[in-house]
Every structure is written in structure tokens, then in C-alpha cells.
Amino acid sequence: MSPDKFLDFLFAGYGAFWTILFGYLGMIFSRQRRLLREVEELRRELSQRKG
């Protein structure tokens, strides 16, 4: 196999690593953002009720 093909495989390998890592990070952080927003909204709601 020629060297450029090897390079293709090389980038394919690290490409897979980045894809999985950033995909997972995206999942986690979007969930975290949503949860933080919900916490904030619920806290506001609760303090309004008390006040």
C-alpha cells in the first residue's frame, strides 16, 4: 500500500477518535445546558411562589 494511503488510514483513525469524543462531549454539554436552564427556571418559579 502506498504512503499516501497510509496517511488516509492515519487520519481516518484519529478522525474516528475526534468524531466519537466530540460527539459525546456535544451530547453531555447540551444536556448540561438544558438541565442548568431548568434548574434556574424552577428556582425562580419556587421563589416567586414563596414571595
Binding site: 504512503p3 497510509f6 496517511l7 488510514f9 492515519l10 483513525g13 484519529y14
Partner: peptide, 9 residues
């Protein structure tokens, strides 16, 4: 060759 570099991760 180069493809071996994936080994490190």
C-alpha cells in the same frame, strides 16, 4: 509506517 501512530491512542 504512519498508520502505526494510531497505536498510541
Amino acid at each position: 509506517g504512519n498508520v502505526q501512530r494510531i497505536f498510541y491512542f
